[in-house]
Amino acid sequence: MPTSKVTVHFPCPVEQVWQTVTDLTRTAWRSDLARVEVMDETHFIEHTKSGYATNFTVTACEPSYRWAFAMENGNMSGSWEGIFEETADGTRLTCTETVNAKHWWMHPFVPGYLKRQQKRYLDDLRKELDHGNQTGTSTGH
């Protein structure tokens, strides 16, 4: 299964990055999503702006350190893991995503898709965190 691993740095506290990533009630910063439907503590469904739904099951939740889940929709199944690490000048976030295409003809496109998805997600996250730092927005901590 194709895997993409990306490590990025954010010049803000680990708690702020954690809160932004894991707060499923506040996802307007995600440019790809229309909404997120929270089913219970470990299950949620992301709905893209084009109407496509992906089911998620949280497999690990260690506050301010590790968040992981399994994901599945009609085209793929896989997993995502985020490791949040405090650094001297902010937070290091390592995202590892593994995806298995359900249709043989999709296999050649998966590595490029993974890279584009991760770039979009991390670009959106950086904009949200930069915006929060500029406006002094509270993260609830």
Rank of each mutant, 00 (worst) to 15 (best):
T139G: 15
R120N: 07
I83K: 07
K49L: 08
Q134I: 09
T139C: 11
W80T: 09
R92L: 06
F84H: 04
W67P: 01
G112H: 04
R35E: 15
G51Q: 10
W104N: 09
N133D: 15
E37S: 13
V6I: 09
A28V: 11
F10P: 01
M76N: 04
S50R: 06
E85P: 00
S138L: 03
F44N: 10
F69D: 12
D130H: 05
Y121D: 11
S31E: 08
L24W: 11
A101I: 08
I45F: 03
R116I: 13
S4M: 06
T27F: 07
Y52G: 13
F109G: 12
G132H: 02
Y65L: 10
A60S: 08
H141V: 13
D40S: 07
T20R: 03
P11Y: 01
T57C: 00
A70E: 12
R66T: 12
Q16E: 15
P13S: 14
R26Y: 11
T59G: 00
H103L: 14
W80Q: 10
R35F: 06
C95T: 14
R26H: 14
H9G: 06
E37T: 14
D89K: 05
I45N: 06
E15N: 08
E62T: 10
T25F: 05
A88I: 06
T54D: 03
T7D: 06
A53N: 00
F44E: 04
E37V: 14
L114N: 00
A70D: 15
M1A: 15
N75Q: 14
E15Q: 07
N133I: 12
S64T: 15
A70V: 05
L24R: 14
V6F: 03
T22E: 09
T57A: 01
R35C: 12
M39L: 14
P108S: 12
G74L: 07
A60V: 04
E15V: 07
K119T: 11
N55Q: 11
D124Y: 05
G78S: 03
Y121H: 11
I83W: 03
W80K: 01
G132C: 02
T135R: 05
T91I: 03
E37F: 09
K5S: 13
G51V: 11
V8A: 11
K119P: 02
E128N: 10
P63N: 11
G78R: 02
K127L: 06
T7Y: 04
Y65I: 05
R26F: 08
D89T: 10
P2T: 05
T94K: 00
E128R: 15
G136M: 01
V36D: 02
T135N: 09
H47G: 06
E97P: 01
K49V: 08
V8W: 01
D124T: 06
G82R: 04
P13L: 11
Q117I: 12
L93K: 04
T25A: 13
P111V: 03
V21K: 03
K5P: 00
